[in-house]
Design a binder for these strands. Structure first.
Lengths: 189, 189
DNA sequence: CTGATTCTGTATCGATTATTCTAGAATAGG
DNA sequence: CCTATTCTAGAATAATCGATACAGAATCAG
């Protein structure tokens, strides 16, 4: 019993995610989100509570459907440097390269360190990303410089997504990535 | 003839710059800007035209008083790797490290590649930053990998400012910077 | 079919927004 | 002192915001 939803939640979250990636949280209105998802404001509030609820849901979807998925695709069970290099190179293709950027990076910059609607997602997303990088570095290289190497790659990751978002020329990025991983391979035991 | 302004423009631009660094453009209201600067909305509109005019002025002030100044402080006429390394290390102190981040990075992420109130400042700021890095690399290292090395440092720069803004642990960053410049010094002729 | 339940669509609300308007204050030139 | 000019302060405005209210539609259990 009860009227069924007229929309597919995954599709709606995907559309909302794109809207938030394009415009951030503050600059997108409920009307914009309605246009992007095809829902009316009534349905949005009924399904997600409020604008923050939709943002949290879309951010969670991004972490799962984009970040976790990318990690699994490129690292899988191998967790090796080659896979991690391919992961970095993939940032320059889809979907981050579509000028909307990465929702994790965008949210980190929009909301900063203060408690916000994005805090939970930011903590989860950064932890997931750093853990994936650390897994590879620790497994393949190890030693006392793991923290250094993990930080270096995390910085590179964020830097790439800023330049993509800014629409800057990223043609030199693949070479930077390959150069970085070449150096990492020299540290292989 | 005519009533003089009751405020110091540099002070006002500094305060507005901090407000925009903290909250971005969309999330800060004229009322917020009035509170931050001590001006009434009447004075803001009289002096800067509108909110975008104040943003443009504050962004221009940031590029001149922060970015250009930092470049001159650390590179000066020497334009050597040591100065550039100190410049990078200084990002982890003041004023960027105060959790507000860099207005250039923040604006790049907030507005993206589309035409916006920040477009002009973004183009100028990125060009100034890249030119300063390129000056050092070309002068001290040169060769066919200049583009690669410039891109690598620009990526590192943006990455650092994202992590600072996000309030992430940046304790490993100095070591990353020193490691990066150690490698660059190996390329010195 | 009936009734209970949940969803949809839209009208509407109060709050907030950027901006304009305006009256008065402050200065300099004459 | 007087007047022209520009600034300041804050009230007023229209638009937009997120959120709510509510009537009707859609479903299913019985």
């Amino acid at each position: 019993m009860t009227r069924p939803r007229s929309f597919d939640e995954t599709t709606v979250l995907h559309d909302a995610m794109d809207a938030f990636r394009r415009s951030g949280f503050a600059s997108v209105s409920i009307k914009d989100l309605g246009d992007a998802t095809g829902l009316t404001s009534g349905s949005i509030y009924n399904a997600f509570g409020d604008k923050e609820g939709l943002y949290r849901a879309a951010f969670g979807y991004y972490i799962d459907a984009v970040i976790r998925r990318r990690i699994e695709t490129y690292l899988g069970e191998a967790n090796d440097l080659d896979g991690l290099e391919q992961l970095f190179l993939s940032l320059l293709c889809a979907p981050e390269s579509d000028e909307h950027g990465c929702l994790l990076t965008n949210a980190a910059v929009e909301f900063g360190a203060q408690q916000s609607v994005a805090s939970e997602g930011l903590a989860e997303g950064f932890a997931m990303l750093e853990a994936a990088i650390r897994r590879v570095i620790e497994r393949q290289i190890g030693g006392g410089q793991v923290d250094l190497l993990v930080a270096k790659l995390l910085l590179l990751y964020q830097g790439i997504l800023v330049l993509i978002r800014a629409g800057r020329n990223v043609s030199a990025c693949p070479a930077v990535i390959r150069s970085e991983f070449e150096q990492l391979r020299k540290l292989l035991p």
